[in-house]
Design a binder for these strands. Sequence first.
DNA 1: GCTAGCATGTAACTCGTTACATGATTGT
DNA 2: ACAATCATGTAACGAGTTACATGCTAGC
Lengths: 202, 202
Amino acid sequence: MSQDIPVTGYAILGLLTFGDELTGYEVKQRADITLRFYWVAPAMSQIYTELRRLTDHELVAARARHDGGREVTTYAITDAGQAALRAWMDHTPAGFPVLKHTVLLRLLIGHVTAPDETRRMLHEYVDELARAREDLTGVREMLRGADEPGEPFRFPSLVADWGLDYFAAETRHAQRALESLATHGPGDGDGETSGEGTDSPA
Amino acid sequence: MSQDIPVTGYAILGLLTFGDELTGYEVKQRADITLRFYWVAPAMSQIYTELRRLTDHELVAARARHDGGREVTTYAITDAGQAALRAWMDHTPAGFPVLKHTVLLRLLIGHVTAPDETRRMLHEYVDELARAREDLTGVREMLRGADEPGEPFRFPSLVADWGLDYFAAETRHAQRALESLATHGPGDGDGETSGEGTDSPA
DNA sequence: GCTAGCATGTAACTCGTTACATGATTGT
DNA sequence: ACAATCATGTAACGAGTTACATGCTAGC
């Protein structure tokens, strides 16, 4: 029944399972600190579109509130919404994650540009990874105190830890690539060519 | 000049920098073994659309051939295409990779379903990762013999190694999550709760 | 008085997908 | 002969983006 909800719709529905009743604006804020790391940070307009669709399907209930004199609409998940979310979790395959890795895409065709350019790109990526780790660490800290089994932020904490490990791993991979590129920089051609690119890390 | 080419267009352009002149069909095959792991595996129709656009911009040259009696069109990158690709590499930021991680998305809201369901999902993910590693290992083997600095598959090899490490890391992360979930399975509540979720892997 | 943040939407557009349609060639 | 693979496209559609438009409230 009603299979026509995009994944982002379920993601938003999921954000509404953590207790509170949120405005579209607040949903966006939550998405920006959680979803953005391993799903997407949907545009505001997309949030409202999705909330509209979920309301039409009666998976969320919209309620008009008065915050001061201003009209705001808050959204809460309904019982039907809980059921639909669970059905989606249990009966549709998760599928394999999709990586749109712009850095790896460019590294793949590194031969079309100067080595320095590629190294610069990798260094920038390492810097951005550091920033991402800081941000996610901040989020992780916010979850402390309610991250034990049975507590509300148990799963978000699991995911945040996974994400932090992922960023750490990416940093290592980028650094390894940089090392591999550094041994053949400008005015540098010899040294042992046999034993540094095949660490066999598995 | 002519900034209106989507990233997938540049990706295809990049595939054409490895020497040969390819048909749309062959581009698709190349994309399926390389791009699919860290970018996308574009649909055939998308490949043709993109080749059409690149031809219009004169970044690739289409040539009608006769393979037997059948008309086939092969595409080769032009000098302008080389220049455009290099300009894109050097003057547009790579940006941060986007992860559409369906497994993590579902893990985030693990509290809406049964623990067994979440564990099943993670086990399936581990299985799929194993298959992906096999596939990518096969690709990696094909690159051997031309993966030294200066050789054509140097960068693709770097990327394949990165990808293999990434899959290995994901497998570890999934297994860690499984362990963390297993300690509180049905009819199982003790064991040490203090020293297994905070390995601090950095 | 002004700016920044809160709050909600519409319109145009692009990328990319699935479904459909066609036909030739090669191997069994 | 028949199926699988090679090869090329069109059409409809969907998800998500940017740009635009509006207005309120709180703090400086």
